[in-house]
Simulated assay, not measured.
Amino acid sequence: MKTIYFAGGCFWGMEAFIKKLPGVKETAVGYANGTKANPTYEEVCSHTTGHAETVRVVYDPSQITLEMLLKAFFKVVDPTELNRQGGDVGEQYRNGIYYTDEEDRKTIEAAIRAVREKYDQPVVTECRKLVCFYDAEEYHQDYLDKNPTGYCHINLLDAEEFIEEEMGERTRC
């Protein structure tokens, strides 16, 4: 198994989207790359901790590659938006990809370069080594499973479309 961390706005939608992908074995939402140990949601939202709402993704590389995960990430993130995604605004909603395996850095940087070619505006997606990750409170974990009508800036039907188009698997009848 391998692990990668995605920050793409509100972590509820990113988690719900990513965990639909074949080969993703486990997800958890939390706070990454800030300055305060074990922050609360309220502290992160106060803009004093520097953390980004982030999803830890554990995946089986024999079933889904990092390249495919990055392609999925960029399907639902606007990489030109600084400190916002959808209606969510603030540094905790920045978009970034955080790695623990130095080997992954080159793959991430190549994906970001490829995305830059598609936009006239600067791409602001972070590519950084993971410094820290703290699990969010339990009520945030699998939030949209527990609250199917909850807020989400990501169209979750994009996951089925992505799987069908990019991975050649049908997920709908």
Rank of each mutant, 00 (worst) to 15 (best):
A16E: 08
R172C: 08
E165S: 12
Y59L: 04
F73D: 13
K36L: 09
Q141L: 12
F133W: 05
R56G: 05
E26I: 04
A28E: 06
N83R: 05
H153W: 09
K20F: 04
C10A: 12
Y93T: 08
A16W: 01
G50L: 02
R170G: 15
V77M: 05
F17T: 05
E109Q: 13
K36E: 08
A37M: 10
S46P: 04
T100Y: 00
L70M: 08
Y139E: 06
T80M: 01
S62V: 09
E91I: 02
G90S: 01
E81T: 15
Y139C: 04
T125F: 06
N95D: 12
L157E: 14
P148S: 04
Y31C: 02
G168I: 07
K20E: 10
D78V: 03
M167L: 13
K106I: 12
I154T: 04
G150F: 03
V76F: 03
A114C: 06
I4Q: 07
P22M: 03
Y41F: 09
L21M: 13
V76P: 02
E109M: 15
F6M: 09
G23V: 07
A111F: 04
N83P: 08
F6R: 03
E43M: 08
T171N: 07
I18T: 14
H47I: 15
Q92S: 07
T149C: 06
M1F: 06
E138Q: 12
H51E: 00
V55Q: 00
N33F: 01
N38D: 11
C173P: 15
A37Y: 05
K129Q: 14
R84W: 02
D142Q: 12
V55I: 06
D120K: 10
Q85L: 09
L157M: 13
T149Q: 14
Y31R: 04
G168R: 01
R56C: 09
Y139A: 12
L144N: 01
Y98W: 05
Y31G: 00
H140K: 14
K2W: 00
R56L: 12
Y41A: 08
V24N: 01
I18H: 04
K36D: 00
I154Y: 02
R105V: 04
T49V: 06
D145E: 11
R170F: 15
K75C: 14
V123E: 06
D158I: 03
